[in-house]
Design a binder for these strands. Structure first.
Length: 198
DNA sequence: AGCACGATGCTCT
DNA sequence: GAGCATCGTGCTT
């Protein structure tokens, strides 16, 4: 199973977000392998994107986005949730793809256990949100800046069959609130129905 | 099935 | 001090 190389991430963010659909997110934790096919992604692109955390320039939180591509940008929000992004484009250009959903294919029991009270949800609902998948995969601030392309990485993406164009649905990004147009409505959310993989 | 709301703490002007 | 790239519960239709 080939791992996606840094070159994959060092491309325009919209292309990376599109192409990540169907690829396999892998997490090695507690001596176990968890994996899931990516079903939803979202692009955040540069300092001019007023929805992007890099809109205030380089800050302690956004610093990872300014770094080299292929690293994890993990941040904390709403007082309780962790979000996983993958840094894209060239170094010094702040951009990333938020992984918003996966369909678990390996380590289902462990993923369910990490989801606690929601662990009995149907598989398609178990990890269909960014905070849900972070919890199920044991992703938190310890992985911020983690190099997904390094040997021995504990979090990475493996090559899997591409999702056909007809199964890719574009839409506005989710959960933005006081973001002005045009950023509020740009179709930078990429989604594919989970039943495609079953 | 859908909406409103509270939880809870970090980040930045 | 305001605002979150969310989720689960509990209430209404």
């Amino acid at each position: 199973m080939a791992r996606l190389p840094r070159q994959f991430f060092a491309r325009p963010t919209l292309a990376v977000a599109r192409d990540l659909l169907g690829q396999r997110l892998v997490r090695l934790v507690a001596g176990q392998r968890l994996a899931g096919l990516i079903t939803e992604t979202e692009a955040y692109i540069g300092q001019t994107d007023l929805a992007c955390h890099a809109r205030f320039g380089r800050t302690p939180r956004s610093a990872v986005m300014f770094g080299p591509p292929g690293r994890a940008y993990v941040y904390f929000t709403y007082g309780m949730h962790w979000m996983l992004n993958v840094v894209t484009e060239a170094e010094d250009y702040p951009a990333a793809v938020l992984i918003r959903g996966v369909l678990v294919t390996e380590g289902e029991a462990a993923a369910r256990a990490r989801r606690g009270a929601q662990g009995h949800a149907p598989l398609a609902r178990l990890t269909d949100g960014p905070a849900k998948l972070a919890q199920a995969f044991g992703i938190d601030k310890a992985l911020n800046g983690h190099d997904l392309c390094a040997r021995g990485a504990e979090l990475f993406v493996e090559r899997a069959p591409a999702v056909p164009e007809a199964a890719v649905h574009l839409g506005p990004r989710i959960g933005l609130n006081h973001v002005p147009e045009p950023w509020y409505s740009l179709p930078w959310n990429f989604k594919t129905p989970p039943h495609l993989f079953t």
